[in-house]
């Protein structure tokens, strides 16, 4: 099953934070076929990613099946300092969720 891990790396430079994250997820489009059985692999992808800085949402991502497997996400935001908390959580189309909280280094 899905390996529900999120890797986060975040740092600040002059008040601006840069975040890089990898979300581990198969991101099946629902268009691929299993070559051995000929059956369609059901769609399974992340629909929503929420990024919170000190409890305040800074970025919401709405994703479709067109996002690559094990999605990589990088973004920047203002008014951040080292030691602030950063929470990234996702939900997928099957209702599975994962959350990881990290500190901005």
């Amino acid at each position: 099953m899905a390996n529900k891990k999120i890797k986060i790396r975040a740092w600040t430079d002059k008040g601006k934070a840069t975040v890089k994250a990898i979300l581990f997820h198969p991101m099946e489009t629902g268009l691929r076929k299993n070559k051995a059985t000929g059956k369609i692999i059901p769609a399974h992808f992340i629909t929503e990613v929420k990024c919170e800085h000190n409890g305040k949402t800074v970025l919401t991502c709405l994703w479709g099946p067109g996002v690559s497997k094990n999605p990589f996400l990088s973004f920047r935001f203002k008014n951040a300092k080292a030691g602030d908390s950063l929470k990234i959580s996702w939900k997928d189309n099957k209702g599975e969720t994962a959350t990881t909280t990290d500190k901005i280094g």
């Binding site: 949402t57 919401t60 991502c61 479709g64 973004f75 935001f77």
Partner: peptide, 20 residues
């Protein structure tokens, strides 16, 4: 439509992602 990122006032207008 691959992805849509909803920004906030704090955002810096920079987003990277990987698409198919």
């Amino acid at each position: 439509l691959c992805a849509s990122y909803i920004l906030t006032k704090q955002s810096d207008g920079f987003v990277t992602g990987r698409i198919k």
